[in-house]
């Protein structure tokens, strides 16, 4: 799959509508496209461009500025090992070295089976659990070689599937409520009138 599905196009239009100006939805729409395909495909970027009223080149140029947006395919699990100073002081480089051996790839590479992409990350704000790791932006730590191996095993066997959705899926809670930004239709959806759970 490459272009946004009909269902995701509908989601995308709802996201555009919550902002006073459509372009503000550019990054949320890139996340939506990544949730669909695991990475930002050129076709999805064309769709995003059309939805927010810019050129595909502008979407690409914006997306490549941000670490979380991948314009090349990545594994189902993106394993990000933080090596910034707080984690470094707790043995992060030793952990990264172990991760490279365990997964058989260098940081920045993806395993042949497409399961894992290993990344060396900047500070993830998990310094109280250093050395910390994120898998698809879910936190784990503090980790040592043994607990890292267990984590990889649990990811492979699907034990953690509920906690760690596949790469690209970020926020699984959708906005279900009305807004004021676009009251042009005077629907005035607001307090108590939304379809909140």
């Amino acid at each position: 799959m490459a272009h946004l599905s009909d269902e995701n196009l509908e989601r995308a239009r709802r996201l555009v509508a919550v902002y006073p100006e459509p372009r503000s939805a550019l990054i949320p729409l890139c996340h939506l496209a990544q949730a669909q395909d695991g990475w930002l495909t050129p076709e999805a970027m064309e769709d995003v461009a059309a939805l927010v009223g810019v050129t595909p080149a502008e979407v690409h140029g914006t997306a490549t500025f941000y670490d979380m947006l991948h314009t090349e395919p990545v594994g189902r699990h993106v394993v990000a090992v933080c090596t910034n100073v707080a984690c470094m002081l707790a043995g992060a480089y030793e952990l990264l070295e172990h991760a490279q051996e365990r997964l058989g790839v260098h940081a920045g590479q993806t395993t042949d089976d497409g399961e894992f992409t290993l990344e060396e990350a900047e500070c993830l704000a998990g310094c109280d659990t250093a050395p910390c790791v994120q898998v698809n932006h879910r936190f784990f730590g503090p980790l040592d070689a043994a607990s890292f191996d267990q984590l990889v095993e649990d990811l492979r066997t699907g034990v953690l599937a509920g906690q760690v959705p596949r790469h690209g899926v970020l926020c699984r809670v959708e906005r279900t409520v009305g807004l004021l930004a676009h009251e042009a239709d005077d629907s005035g959806v607001g307090a108590g009138e939304g379809s909140a759970p």
Partner: peptide, 12 residues
């Protein structure tokens, strides 16, 4: 945010 709308702390 969703819950705050439902509770009446956000919206109109």
């Amino acid at each position: 945010c969703n819950d705050a709308y439902a509770y009446g702390a956000l919206g109109t």
